[in-house]
């Protein structure tokens, strides 16, 4: 087991979880995680993503019948301390009674590694995370971002077979989150380690995941590469949880979709649909010379600098979200015409 050692393949077989109070946190789940890939569990709170991670870690036992396999070996009865997985917690779980170096070296001390070796490895980890100068600090003297780096260094120091990250960036502010996301990404690539990452932030999931597992109510809603999940969502839940989705209701007949706002030509339309979905980037404000079929009025306009986000009232339950890069001012009540790229249309 070294940094470059063979990464671990993880499989879940029929893993369900019912808590003592009767809540069903997880429906029976089968999942194969390939060696060396980064899989992101994504979903709203209470969807079962953290429970799944804790079952893999060995912090929770699956209900009877469920199995966790590491490289084909059944590890279900092993507690976490015998699974050799690195874990990064949302609250970091750094030991306040130890210094930064003490935290990073703790796993090696437990493994009775010789002192000199511990010192060398700790120094290497601190250097890698660029926190060498913090080695002797106490945990309560660290900022959130620094704590996160210590937590990562500590988890990696023991050369785990897999790295499990439970919402590691949630406690940080937005700007820091972006920086650390980049760092985690390059860290995971350079280690080549199997990583499982739990988050409710879709941007994080898109950026980090080789594959994303979208979960809802204890079930897997969809598994796929980020692009597939975004462009070809399998369910309405996935479509609306990830990114922004616009919706129009109406009648589809002979390649023409008719709704309250007007008509829309769609050559490759399916047989029938009463509702079509599309992303904000596939709809735009039509130029004056175009013949666009949809009409609406601006309900609200937010100038974001590089673009303007418009909420356009088209007689549906929710206004359409339109991102416009046009160099013009929009005001409440302005009448606009809308053009939709048919390649972005979805029926679910």
């Amino acid at each position: 087991m070294t940094d470059s050692g063979k990464p671990l393949a993880i499989a879940l077989q029929g893993c369900a979880k019912t808590f003592p109070d009767g809540t069903k946190a997880l429906e029976p789940l089968d999942l194969a995680i390939h060696a060396g890939e980064t899989v992101v569990f994504l979903g709203p709170s209470g969807c079962g993503k953290t429970t799944t991670l804790r079952i893999i870690a060995g912090l929770e036992e699956p209900d009877a019948g469920g199995k966790v396999l590491f490289d084909g070996v059944d590890v279900t009865p092993l507690p976490i301390e015998q699974r050799n997985v690195g874990m990064v917690f949302q609250s970091y779980a750094l030991f306040p009674n130890m210094t930064v170096a003490g935290n990073v070296g703790y796993g090696l001390r437990i493994r009775r590694t010789p002192d000199a070796e511990i010192r060398a490895r700790v120094a290497e980890m601190l250097a890698m995370m660029q926190i060498t100068k913090l080695a002797d600090r106490r945990i309560d003297q660290l900022s959130g971002g620094q704590r996160q780096r210590v937590a990562l260094a500590r988890a990696i120091a023991v050369r785990p077979r897999a790295l499990l990250l439970d919402e590691p960036l949630t406690a940080l502010d937005a700007k820091l989150r972006d920086t650390l996301r980049l760092e985690i990404d390059s860290l995971l690539r350079s280690l080549g380690i199997t990583a499982i990452y739990v988050t409710h932030d879709q941007a994080e999931a898109m950026a980090l995941g080789d594959r994303i597992v979208v979960m809802e109510h204890g079930r897997v809603a969809q598994i796929g590469k980020p692009r597939e999940i975004y462009q070809r969502p399998a369910t309405r839940f996935v479509a609306e949880f990830i990114g922004t989705m616009n919706r129009l209701t109406g009648v589809l007949q002979g390649g023409v979709f008719t709704c309250k706002a007007g008509t829309l030509a769609w050559a490759e339309a399916p047989r029938q649909a009463t509702e079509i979905l599309f992303r904000p980037e596939d709809i735009r404000i039509a130029e004056s010379q175009e013949t666009a079929g949809l009409h609406g009025t601006v309900a609200a306009a937010f100038f974001l600098g590089d673009r303007t986000r418009l909420f356009v009232e088209v007689g549906e339950a929710r206004p359409l979200v339109v991102e416009s890069t046009a160099r013009r001012d929009f005001g409440h009540g302005d009448a606009v015409r809308l053009a939709i790229d048919p390649r972005g249309l979805l029926v679910l």
Partner: peptide, 22 residues
């Protein structure tokens, strides 16, 4: 946050008595 601290130690390989002591 005793629970999480203990989980953190366990994830690094510490058994019950090591966690209690450390």
């Amino acid at each position: 946050d005793l629970q999480t601290l203990e989980e953190g130690a366990a994830s690094l390989g510490a058994g019950f008595w090591a966690r209690f002591r450390d």
